[in-house]
Design a protein around this nucleic acid. Sequence first.
DNA 1: TTGTACGCGTTATCAC
DNA 2: GTGATAACGCGTACAA
Lengths: 320, 320
Amino acid sequence: MKDVAARAGVALKTVSRVVNGEPGVTPETTSRVLGAIEDLGFRRNESARLLRTGQTATLGFIADDCADPDLAGVWRGLEEVASEHGFLLYAGSTGGEPSREEQLALSLCARRVDGLIIVPAPGDHGYLVPEIEAGTAAVFVLRPPASLNADTVIADERGGARAAMAHLIAHGHRRIGYVGDPAGHRSRELTHGYAEAMAAAGLPVAESWTSLTPQRLLEPAVTAVTAVLCGGREHTVRVLRTLARAGAARRVAIVGFGDLDLADVVSPGVTVVSYDAAQAGRAAGELIVRRLAGEEDPPRRIELPVRLVPRGSAEFAPES
Amino acid sequence: MKDVAARAGVALKTVSRVVNGEPGVTPETTSRVLGAIEDLGFRRNESARLLRTGQTATLGFIADDCADPDLAGVWRGLEEVASEHGFLLYAGSTGGEPSREEQLALSLCARRVDGLIIVPAPGDHGYLVPEIEAGTAAVFVLRPPASLNADTVIADERGGARAAMAHLIAHGHRRIGYVGDPAGHRSRELTHGYAEAMAAAGLPVAESWTSLTPQRLLEPAVTAVTAVLCGGREHTVRVLRTLARAGAARRVAIVGFGDLDLADVVSPGVTVVSYDAAQAGRAAGELIVRRLAGEEDPPRRIELPVRLVPRGSAEFAPES
DNA sequence: TTGTACGCGTTATCAC
DNA sequence: GTGATAACGCGTACAA
């Protein structure tokens, strides 16, 4: 910028004015400065600018694995909003490790991102308190934070599980199982929804039904189970694979959580409950943009609907 | 930092030394500074630091859509390398629009990212020349850049197409079609591979075979076609869906480009050719890290293998 | 072992 | 309209 000023024969500030489109510069001077900028291939150093202004126009996205379909969807929605408002986006994966999440978040704060959008790993999020007090906005997506009250956007997974269960029960299923990870926020919500729906229908639940694996589904001890809710894409795929190999010997109604590439191509089609991850990302982005615009309301909690998509794998009555 | 120095009763530089772990500070002084840092909740401002040092320890990733499975895979591999070497990652989606790509790339350069990893949109990339000359490293992934000679990591899509075609031909297919976008780098490569394989086998190609859509596959004019190569996941899915609806009336051998969630669960399993996107990301990351370490060799071109995964949808002879 | 002075590239304040 | 000068928060050279 100094060089540009020298070449145009003006002061530093005048170049700054031109670059920022500030008023009060003769068209003649402007064009001279512009010429010098062109000649020297000058491009403003944003780091310096941001150091001076204190605003980085930057957001950070932190999630387990940005390549996961749900999280990638969130990312896409978030990016839409970010680019609309002129924010650039950092992204980082934690692999579900709390320590890596903290490290990432603090690195981003040290770079003075204006806001953080976090799909939280398990563990405490108290480490963010000083950052938030220092002015960094934070929104949690898909999972609530621990030890922290902040804006949150989550999917109504429990409601989704209830809808799936009601669907299975309406088709005559009474002995229904759950296949999924034992831990994690989603599993907790889904098993709650599962239990609520079973209780509401007055149906008993055997303990072994809620800790199923695809293989155990074939064991004599649980062959009484006529339907399952799968707590995630990989579980749905594993169950479908296992049952496909078992052939006609074992028929189980299936509702999966999360949509799949070929869900409508397999036979029967895979019935799923799912939500719009991009919508979650957009909601989170809009929340944070509003905070950065100065909104001071107490933390909000936005809940996204989880909808049932019937395709056939759950729309039949048990044989017994 | 000034405040910390004041509170600890030392000079600015001493705080700097402690923060950076430089030698030459009394343990006593160190602990006093550390205490002040703790009390004030001080955290070094990286922007300022990087303004001073000139290195941002930051990379930028630009792609059509970070939520696309292939590009998300590239992202994952890239991030692995980046975090290993202490780089933070910006990410931006272009939606395939050249103007948005340019805008993103220049914004990132203005923030002085050390390097750019680009899955290029169509169009000219000459706009990057001044940036590269100014010291920004650039690597192109999955598609080669136009009007620019730079490091590139691509998948051997043409070879993949040849392998797929050879596979179909070996199973007795003679009239083979291609379903895919008319434009784009991948389509170009795949249709070249297609043509090469057909020519190598001495097979004639009707013009209508290379501009197929799922619907046209059912038309009388092209029912002679007994097998197809699909140029992308969405095409494979659409073909499978269309044929599933058509039922037993039309049987077509299929090889898809890009793996699918339930590829091994549908019956028959979907035979695909695919590559390891994460490997592409890692290769790109390593390339750029090496450049940033000062490597001066001429631009490299790394080619990743594309492998055939037989699952059944292509492993049968034509009926005629 | 510690401190001083200066510079990184920009914007902001005021004077001219 | 334009310009000199001080900041922003930190690292570096060199003196103490």
